[in-house]
Simulated assay, not measured.
Amino acid sequence: MSDFDWDGSDVVLEHQPKTAVYTNDRGQVVIRQEAGSLDPEDVWVYFDAANALSLCKAILEAAGHDDIEFVRNCGGLSYEDIEIPERRARRSPAEQVEQMKAARPDVDWDKASADFDKLAAKTAPKDPTAAERKRRQRERERDTRDTTPLAPVTSVTSAVTPQPAPRDAWLFNEEAKESALAR
């Protein structure tokens, strides 16, 4: 059961799982969504208030509202545009490598690359089919071990070996039982 009031003024979406937006004790903005019938508890998203405009812009762009601009009221009837930095596009691995090389001109990258290649060659499996060969070897050993003839039987013993009587066998004697009951 949730301790959050889903009928309060923090709820901003009603048609889907109810969603609330508020600030917590640490000054972070919290987006909280009510647990569905299959969810064990509510879902929370926390972010610093300084990132609120960037997050809002990203949400609007994802929703197809790229044309919306942010403005701030400067008092009275004057407003100013709020500039939000563009999100950085993800770089390809090759671009990341080039940036790393440019950031560390003191490193001999050709030598580092050659050292890495040597290390990779040492740790790489020598033969990719080695595991398969080992499996076949174990099967052959198992097959030859199973076909080894048993040792010859040299004597025949009774199927039932007599067991010595337990020390307290007299307790199970019928006469002893009857005499015990008669007392």
Results as ranks from 00 to 15, higher is better:
Asp110Gln: 07
Ser92Thr: 13
Ile31Ser: 00
Pro93Thr: 04
Met100Cys: 05
Asn73Thr: 02
Asp42Asn: 12
Lys111Pro: 01
Asp168Tyr: 14
Lys134Asn: 01
Glu141Ile: 00
Ala131Arg: 14
Leu53His: 08
Thr148Phe: 11
Val45Phe: 09
Ile82Met: 05
Ala102Trp: 00
Asn73Phe: 01
Glu34Val: 02
Glu95Gln: 13
Lys111Met: 14
Ala120Trp: 04
Gln28Val: 03
Arg135Gly: 05
Ala89Lys: 12
Leu150Lys: 15
Pro105Asp: 06
Ser92Arg: 07
Trp44Arg: 15
Thr19Gly: 04
Asp115Asn: 14
Thr148Asp: 10
Arg104Tyr: 09
Ala20Trp: 02
Glu41Pro: 03
Pro128His: 11
Lys57Glu: 15
Cys74Tyr: 00
Val107Phe: 03
Pro17Tyr: 02
Arg87Leu: 05
Ser158Arg: 14
Gln96Pro: 00
Glu174Ser: 15
Glu98Met: 06
Cys74Asp: 15
Ala89Thr: 08
Trp6Gln: 05
Pro40Leu: 10
Gly75Phe: 02
Asn24Arg: 01
Met100Thr: 06
Ala121Lys: 13
Ser9Asp: 07
Gly8Gln: 01
Gln96Ser: 00
Arg167Ile: 04
Ala58Pro: 03
Phe70Asp: 01
Ala159Asn: 09
Asp108Glu: 07
His15Lys: 08
Glu132Val: 08
Phe47Val: 04
Val160Lys: 07
Thr19Arg: 06
Thr147Glu: 12
Pro105Ile: 03
Asp67Phe: 09
Arg104Gln: 11
Pro85Met: 06
Arg135Glu: 03
Thr19His: 03
Glu139Pro: 00
His15Met: 02
Glu83Leu: 11
Asn173Gln: 14
Glu41Trp: 05
Pro40Glu: 13
Phe116Cys: 13
Arg167Val: 09
Asp108Gly: 03
Thr123Cys: 12
Thr154Pro: 04
Cys56Thr: 13
Lys177Ser: 06
Asn51Cys: 07
Pro128Phe: 08
Val160Cys: 01
Ala52Met: 10
Glu178Phe: 14
Pro149Phe: 08
Asp3Tyr: 08
Lys134Thr: 04
Val29His: 02
Ala169Cys: 07
Gly27Phe: 03
Glu174Phe: 14
Ala62Asn: 10
Trp170Val: 11
Glu83His: 13
Asp48Tyr: 10
Gly64Arg: 07
His65Trp: 13
Lys177Val: 15
Ala124Thr: 06
Gln28Gly: 05
Ala151Asn: 14
Lys118Ala: 06
Pro152Trp: 03
Val156Phe: 09
Asp117Tyr: 10
Gln33Met: 11
Lys111Ile: 13
Glu86Thr: 05
